[in-house]
């Protein structure tokens, strides 16, 4: 890895805890490359994570890093950003962390449009606890808590985020690593709540149970089933069945929470002088 990226990592704390073939390292690498590309001030960038395999990523990154409690990363991040708006706050979370136990925080952070960038390491399973189904586990697949096949419908994280008010939403995958870094860059650059749905593979807890083959085969699945936004526009819903769309899915402008609160401060202080 190039010198400039290396200084953004705590090389002393690598090797990481992830299994061979896990896609989390790829998502972490894309995140670090995005930060490097943007030239973010290392002293003014804070990484916040929740609990789960993905959320261990914060410990490998050489910034002020906060590994919080399960599902709560966005609440801590909200406190940091509001208390010290000059900081760039990036939240690393998993699909279970963000949309099950942290689902309420996720939709409300989106509703506030607070200037945070949330990268969801979406492997569709609870990896750390050994393969229980998450809100992103596809219907019909197998998990340790769905031994007869999963009966629930999964969330579409991007649609959820858009509906809740997020103003930048994109999806990438561990296979499309360059594109993933690109949308992370755009997410961080965007002022407001940004969500990057990073589709990644868990060969140990999802792949094995669902006969997905070796990690390389899971990456090939991502390659073969990803459809770019541009390509998807030309396809029918039938043709898109079972596929996932990658690229920039949503971008809008809306008042950002911290900036709006600055106006509250101005109003309160003007009122106080009367």
């Amino acid at each position: 890895m190039e010198q400039s990226v290396e200084k953004l990592l705590r090389t002393k704390h690598l090797a990481h805890i992830w299994c061979p073939g896990c896609g989390n390292g790829t998502v972490l690498a894309a995140t670090v490359r995005a930060i490097e590309h943007l030239g973010l001030d290392q002293d003014k960038t804070v990484i916040v994570s929740g609990i789960g395999c993905s959320s261990r990523a914060s410990g490998y990154m050489n910034f002020d890093t906060l590994h919080t409690a399960h599902g709560r990363a966005l609440t801590f991040a909200t406190g940091i950003k509001l208390a010290r708006p000059e900081l760039t706050v990036i939240v690393l979370t998993g699909d279970g962390d963000a949309t099950a136990i942290g689902g309420n925080h996720f939709i409300h952070a989106a509703r506030r449009n607070i200037d945070l960038t949330t990268i969801v390491f979406n492997n569709g399973i609870y990896g750390m606890t050994g393969g229980q189904y998450s809100p992103l586990t596809p219907t019909g697949s197998y998990a340790s808590t769905a031994p007869y096949g999963h009966i629930e419908r999964p969330f579409d994280i991007a649609k959820l985020a858009i509906a809740a008010g997020a103003t930048y939403v994109a999806r990438g995958s561990a296979y499309h690593t360059k594109m993933l870094a690109d949308v992370i860059i755009k997410g961080i650059e965007h002022t407001g709540f940004s969500v990057i749905d990073a589709v990644t593979q868990c060969p140990t807890s999802f792949g094995r149970k669902n006969k997905m083959g070796a990690p390389a085969a899971m990456l090939e699945w991502q390659r073969d089933n990803a459809v770019t936004v541009e390509a998807a526009a030309k396809l029918t819903p039938e043709q898109l069945a079972g596929k996932f769309i990658i690229g920039e899915l949503h971008r809008s402008e809306a008042p950002e929470y911290v900036a709006e609160y600055d106006k509250v401060i101005a109003r309160a202080q003007k009122g106080a002088k009367k």
């Binding site: 609440t75 406190g79 940091i80 509001l82 309420n104």
Partner: peptide, 28 residues
């Protein structure tokens, strides 16, 4: 806000606790 401080009503009690922890780590 009159003192330049920040108030936020969070989505639930746990979120309130998380946000104060975050703010404190940010030095406030």
């Amino acid at each position: 806000p009159r003192l330049g401080g920040k108030f936020i009503q969070m989505e639930d009690e746990i979120a309130g606790m998380g946000a104060v922890c975050g703010a404190s780590l940010a030095g406030v």
